[in-house]
């Protein structure tokens, strides 16, 4: 793991105009600072609506912070840039494109010659275990396979930083674990840096080097928890480690899960 910072948020605020006529603004993210070093995987967990996705969108340059700066590879983010690629819960495959054409989307937008595009897409389709499905259309694939194709499309543009917004949360438990394993392996082998948003406490422990806990809206980072369990490249094995349980308990405590429940519920 290098010491070079790949993506950094420096005192970032994001406010949106409030809904309705009253005017005013709603704060989505308040004073967030974080830095992810080369090759690191950092998870962000927090309650729904705490501004996690807002952070990712600013990282991808889809919108700019109200205050503060985002840096990718040392450069301030002023808009979409080639260092970053994102992946969402929705696979966002285009139904009119075959799987190979979907994987090629980013390269095509960046005007990579057709032959190069194709070679790269075929290689990534193989890496994501989709060989044989190149000319299938998205509707012919299962949810897990579609998300694999989305991963291949994300990797195809060779980003240094992967921004992932609950990419596996729509999948069933088993498919999810297999895809986590694949993702972790790929990230480790290619030395990618990743900022990973999730609701799933164990997922955040299994996949990352550090976990950042965010508060409810307006979102700010309340705690940073390092995950000092070996085997980040093999989350299925990592899940079985005895340290996972206590760590999950600590995350629950940080997120105040269970506290709001009335005593009779137990």
């Amino acid at each position: 793991m290098g010491s070079k910072v790949r993506i950094e948020f420096r005192r970032v605020w994001k406010r949106f105009p409030a809904r309705g006529r009253g005017g005013g603004e709603v704060s989505a993210v308040e004073d967030v600072s974080l830095a992810v070093r080369d090759g690191e995987v950092v998870s962000i967990i927090g309650p729904s609506g705490c501004g996690k996705s807002t952070l990712l969108n600013m990282g991808a340059g889809l919108y700019l912070p109200s205050a503060g700066e985002v840096y990718v590879d040392g450069e301030p983010v002023a808009g979409p840039n080639p260092h970053v690629a994102f992946m969402l819960q929705k696979d966002l495959l285009l139904p009119w494109r075959s799987i190979r054409e979907n994987v090629e989307l980013g390269l095509e937008i960046r005007r990579v010659p057709a032959a190069d595009r194709r070679a790269r897409a075929v290689a990534l389709i193989e890496r994501c275990h989709l060989t044989g499905f190149e000319s299938h259309y998205p509707h012919q694939l299962s949810g897990g396979m579609r998300q694999r194709a989305a991963l291949a499309r994300t990797l195809a543009v060779d980003p240094t930083v992967l921004l992932m917004d609950e990419p596996f949360s729509a999948l069933d438990a088993q498919t999810k674990m297999v895809l986590q394993q694949d993702l972790a392996q790929t990230v480790a082998e290619e030395g990618k840096t990743a900022l990973f948003i999730t609701h799933d406490l164990v997922e955040s422990i299994a996949l990352s080097d550090r976990i950042l806990v965010m508060s409810a809206r307006p979102g700010r980072i309340v705690t940073e928890i390092p995950v000092s369990i070996p085997g980040r490249e093999a989350p299925i094995r990592r899940r079985l480690d005895t340290r996972v349980g206590p760590l999950a308990a600590r995350l629950m405590e940080e997120l105040h899960i269970g506290e709001a429940m009335p005593a009779e519920a137990f």
């Binding site: 991808a60 340059g61 889809l62 808009g79 979409p80 966002l92 989307l105 937008i109």
Partner: peptide
Amino acid sequence: DLVNLARSFSATRWQIFRMI
């Protein structure tokens, strides 16, 4: 989100129209 996906790849307005 499809439009944002294309935008994240630095698509031009015309590319967004043509491809999405």
